[in-house]
Amino acid sequence: MSAPVPEIPLDLRAEVRRAVASLDHESRDSGSMTSDLSIDEELNLHSIGWEPVALVSGVSVFSVPVGCWNWGQGEIAVASAAQAHAFHHAITRIHTEAANVGGHGVVGVHIERLVYSTHIEVSLVGTAVRPVGAGAINGSGIFVSDLSARDFTLLMIAGWEPLGLATGASFVFAPRRSVATVLQQQSQNVELTNFTEAMYSARESAMERMQQSALAMHGTGVVEVKVVEGPMRFAGHAVGFVAVGTVVRLAKTTHQLIHPTMVVSLNDQNVAFDAQTLA
């Protein structure tokens, strides 16, 4: 392990005393910043010259006609549309809030997505960020991303920038098998080709829609794509596929290598991201 970069030792105890003593004096303006970032994330942001501004959120709920889940064939278009609209409106709201507080983007967006038989809800919470002290920018330049502040930092160091959230959703019916087919297949090992095909194409169309939204933002890639799929709790024969990821684009002329150092950790718990003690 290479020796750590020598740092000017900071007298931590003296800093603590100074900090605490300052509490008794008139408060100096801390800019009323609000954020749900951890100190590590905030320090990471600062290391690339960015800072948190304010906690922002956006919620949208779209109705779904209850009858749409009744047995049918192919895609449940209205549910797919409701999911797409709910994403779109929630993202627009968090985007507007970020613009209002002078943010250049939103990082670490927590996405909560709930599907009920009668409505679909999307709620987003994240922290608006900007280059230190920068003024407000044009709304179209503001990004919304579910990347953590840490991932955002690494991405920026490597010369890339996030553009926004790409989403795609597809709700479909599982195909029906006739009683005769079920009986016939009962004792056999066979691929249920029509099932394979239905699920396959639903997954493809969710991904395809996500890609479309990424292209519309002029992105060259989507990172951290998360696909959530499975049958509905209230209707087992309906299956949903929802894909979400952050659209990125190379901001500098070339990709910058980050040259990681290799370490051996003696911690059992997998601390995915934290400043750690390397003794």
């Binding site: 300052s22 509490l23 801390s30 320090l43 290391s47 040259h259 150092t261």
Partner: peptide
């Protein structure tokens, strides 16, 4: 509450 100006730390070392 802020009690001194922010002193940005050097970019953290990426590790694997």
């Amino acid at each position: 509450r802020r009690f001194k100006d922010f002193d940005p730390l050097t970019a953290p070392r990426p590790t694997v």
